[in-house]
């Protein structure tokens, strides 16, 4: 554990809770892509199946349980409890376009040809692109609420901070995980455009709007 990874994890947890709190307090899932949230739930379930057979630390276990439960709760709120407020008409990204390539990539790039390793690789690739339905939705509606922007910023920062963590780990322990690093870089690049809008608009007190 180093400071970059800790900050990354804090940012990740923050993102998850910002989203849950926003939906819960406003009693509305407007502007949130249920499809992205389903993809994230698949990501956590596929990656954290090792909860049952490998113990790394109490910290890891608690975080894994937290991500699985929070993402399931988010999906429940969007599709069941506040279904009436969910903006399904604008949430039209075809998730098979990310699910199938992630699965194919997992079969090509993995650390061993076992079910759990393939699931792990799949989850890493899927995580990199899981936000696309949400970004697509923001582009389609042309704007995002400030809380949604904060959520996206925290979620994007998490993988960016992980990149710093990987650089640090490479130099201090020689640790290098090519699959996670490549996917993490792609993931961070996908947020770059959003980061720019966030800094130039939301932080200046304006609403995030995407020009056509």
């Amino acid at each position: 554990m180093n400071l970059f990874r800790l900050m990354g994890d804090v940012s990740h947890v923050l993102a998850v809770f910002i989203l849950l709190a926003k939906i819960w307090r406003t009693r509305s899932a407007a502007g949130i892509s249920g499809r992205s949230q389903i993809l994230f739930t698949i990501v956590y379930l596929a990656r954290y199946m090792d909860l049952f057979f490998s113990f790394i630390s109490l910290y890891n276990t608690v975080m894994k349980l937290l991500f699985i439960s929070a993402s399931c709760a988010t999906v429940y709120l969007i599709y069941f409890k506040f279904r009436a407020t969910y903006d399904g008409n604008h949430d039209t990204f075809r998730i098979e376009f990310v699910l199938v390539p992630s699965l194919l990539l997992a079969f090509i790039f993995h650390y061993s040809m076992s079910f759990f390793e393939l699931a792990w690789s799949f989850s890493i690739f899927l995580e990199a692109v899981a936000i696309l339905p949400q970004l697509f939705m923001v582009t389609k509606t042309g704007e995002a609420e400030n809380i949604t922007s904060h959520y996206l910023f925290a979620l994007g920062s998490y993988r960016a901070l992980y990149i710093l963590n990987w650089i640090y780990r490479y130099y201090t322990e020689g640790h290098f995980d090519p699959i996670a690093v490549c996917a993490g870089i792609v993931q961070t690049i996908l947020y770059c455009d959003f980061f720019y809008l966030y800094v130039t608009k939301v932080l200046q007190g304006r609403k995030l709007q995407v020009l056509p």
Binding site: R5, D9, H12, D50, S54, I56, N60, M63, K64, F67, Y111, S112, F116, E117, W120, Y162, N165, D177, A180
Partner: peptide, 10 residues
């Protein structure tokens, strides 16, 4: 063994 050693991140 290396699986847990490798996937120690979230």
């Amino acid at each position: 063994f290396w699986r847990t050693a490798l996937h120690d991140e979230l």
